[in-house]
């Protein structure tokens, strides 16, 4: 027998029996799940591009004070509703003569905050309830999931308007509203996936070894629920931004002087026949951001969909 592939004389060593020939080669590196996900993302150029776009948007919001050519709140009666590329006002000015570009840069701070914070909060709350409901099953599941169904019964916009209306305006209330609206769908996703995991043999094996429920949840259920929940949560970021803009547009969000994309759309609405393109600019910002988040989450879903 020649060749480096030959593992051992057959049956000579019982331990070598199960070791297949190919494992003797310097096999592929062990990457683990997240390693594999990253490997897939690395070659998904479209997703990487939009990830870059998101980073740009985030950076422009963070560094808005450095990047903005003007003070976003400085009004000028003389320069109201100017068109694109009007002197230094690259994107024109609004109905109070404030620089649109500066306001969009600053507005990104509010909008991104509205997109990310409620999603993170809802992921924790909804994920927790969902995992508990899915793993426990039975009556606890019924109680938790039926309560979530109450929220599901309303269209999300209507629900957001109702909650926001009763809480009143303001940034904190808007964050709370969005969190409440986003929790039920995340809870449902976590519940579905946890109840699937619950029926797997490896969970039974863990129970058979005498592990406590908490230990099984931490070591076996959570790690498997994380990726579907994460993917779903990332799709909600853009939804949350849109919802927040909608609330601001309706006057249920942040209060007027603060720059906010939704609010800008709302106040520029009246000028739509005078300067249609300028009025659309905050909308373009919303569109770009939500498309970027959606496409990245799509790529993330594909990368995480490892058959494992």
């Amino acid at each position: 027998m020649s060749g480096a592939l030959v593992e051992a004389p057959p049956a000579a060593d019982a331990r070598a029996q199960g070791v297949p020939a190919r494992e003797a080669e310097p096999a592929t590196r062990v990457r683990g799940y997240w390693g594999n996900v990253w490997q897939r993302l690395r070659y998904d150029y479209a997703t990487l591009f939009f990830l870059f776009v998101i980073l740009l948007i985030v950076a422009s919001a963070v560094f808005a004070p450095l990047l903005s050519p003007f003070d976003p709140n400085k009004a000028s009666m003389a320069h109201r509703l100017k068109p694109l590329f009007y002197h230094d006002n690259i994107l024109g000015t609004d109905e109070q003569g404030r620089d649109i570009l500066s306001r969009i840069l600053y507005g990104g701070r509010t909008s991104l905050l509205m997109g990310i914070v409620p999603v993170v909060a809802a992921t924790f709350v909804g994920g927790l309830f969902g995992v508990v409901a899915g793993y426990a099953g039975g009556r606890l599941n019924t109680i938790i999931m039926r309560s979530m169904d109450v929220f599901f019964a309303f269209p999300s916009v209507l629900l957001a308007v109702a909650i926001s209306g009763s809480l009143g305006g303001g940034m904190v209330n808007q964050l709370i509203t969005l969190t409440v609206v986003l929790t039920p769908p995340l809870c449902r996703v976590a519940e579905t996936s946890a109840s699937q995991i619950r029926s797997m043999d490896f969970v039974d094996a863990a129970r058979a070894s005498g592990a406590s429920t908490v230990s099984i949840l931490l070591h076996h259920v959570l790690v498997n629920v994380v990726s579907p929940v994460l993917v779903y949560a990332s799709t909600l970021v853009s939804a949350s931004i849109l919802l927040a803009s909608g609330l601001s547009f309706l006057g249920l969000g942040v209060s007027p002087p603060t720059p906010d994309w939704g609010l800008m759309l709302s106040t520029l609405r009246e000028a739509i026949y005078v300067r249609p393109i300028v009025c659309a600019m905050p909308g373009v910002a919303i569109l770009l951001t939500s498309i970027a988040f959606n496409l990245v989450s799509d790529g993330l879903r594909q990368a995480m969909d490892v058959k494992a």
Binding site: A8, P10, A16, Q17, R22
Partner: peptide, 11 residues
Amino acid sequence: AIPGSPPDLRA
């Protein structure tokens, strides 16, 4: 039993 396992079809 036949020792080992089938070859890797990738190589």
